[in-house]
């Protein structure tokens, strides 16, 4: 992965690794159970409670650590769904061409025109927003972009000498896709994955913030939702330890994904970075 030498990508990768580490180790490193009332309500940060406590006396620092899990799960899950479907449709359409291609791309157009967020709000309110639903829905509204990009790449790769040669020598469709297309699409896939991840993290937090998420799982969005429901949040110092950390955590996760995505970008578009204006 030589593009990882890109400082921005490096920073992004570092941020994400940190978050993954926190998510995995949450039960070990969190000082308290995030659901237990372990202190007095609404306590300002102390050494016992690094980020203070919320209205139920739960430790906010522990909640932030645990909140990493649903965010990353939804981000990675949705990105997997989107990239999986997107690649299948994009590569298929690009290789097949003809009617299949036309139909697939019109479907993509329809999906691209959907107002994503209102749709999500609607689905979340009607079916509920469990993590699985969220992963599926975000993945399914985000695949068209991936499909469009991979189709374009596939079309150009299809005409490359080595791909044509491989087919001439009797390489089956599956073989060509596996052996030549997917490796060549690798960077594109990585970058799409990361981009969808960023959006999914934001949407998960957003829906939880609106109170439409899964209320049984502690997440950053849910923490914000609870905090904002608290009367008197704005005219006391509460918001400094109740609102800011969760907002900061969300920003960090999204930045991690975005930095990685932007850092990986120059490979397809070298002009963006190196040319001096």
């Amino acid at each position: 992965m030589k593009q990882l030498r890109e400082p921005m990508a490096l920073l992004g990768a570092a941020l994400l690794s940190l978050l993954v580490l926190v998510a995995v180790l949450a039960p070990v490193i969190a000082p308290y159970d995030p659901r237990d009332a372990v202190g007095p309500s609404l306590q300002a940060p102390t050494f016992a409670h690094l980020l203070g406590t919320n209205d139920l006396g739960q430790d906010i620092f522990s909640q932030i650590l645990w909140g990493t899990r649903p965010s990353l799960l939804v981000g990675v899950g949705a990105a997997t769904v989107a990239v999986g479907v997107g690649i299948a449709v994009g590569v298929g359409a690009g290789l097949r061409g003809g009617l299949a291609d036309t139909v697939a791309m019109r479907v993509v157009d329809v999906f691209l025109a959907l107002p994503v967020l209102p749709l999500l709000v609607l689905i979340a309110a009607l079916v509920g927003a469990g993590r699985a639903t969220l992963v599926l829905v975000i993945g399914l509204v985000r695949w068209p972009e991936v499909a469009r990009l991979t189709r374009g790449q596939t079309l150009s790769l299809r005409c490359r000498g080595y791909v044509e040669a491989s087919r001439e020598f009797g390489g089956g469709l599956g073989y060509v896709v596996r052996r030549h297309l997917l490796p060549a699409l690798g960077p594109l896939i990585t970058s799409s994955f990361v981009n969808v991840g960023a959006i999914a993290v934001l949407m998960e937090a957003g829906l939880a913030f609106l109170g439409l998420g899964d209320t049984t799982v502690i997440s950053w969005g849910l923490m914000l939702n609870r905090a904002l429901l608290f009367p008197g949040l704005y005219y006391s110092a509460l918001w400094t330890w109740w609102v800011l950390p969760a907002g900061f955590a969300i920003s960090l996760a999204v930045l991690g994904f975005t930095f990685l995505g932007v850092g990986l970008e120059p490979r397809f578009n070298p002009g963006w970075r190196r040319t001096k204006l």
Partner: peptide, 29 residues
């Protein structure tokens, strides 16, 4: 959105606490 905050900001002239109840800290001002 939040009556007590709006009252404090001068946007309204009277505010009820939420029927779900309120912590003392929200009444301080």
């Amino acid at each position: 959105g939040n009556e007590l905050t709006a009252l404090l900001a001068g946007g309204i002239d009277a505010a009820g606490s939420a029927v779900t109840g309120v912590q003392p800290v929200a009444l301080g001002p």
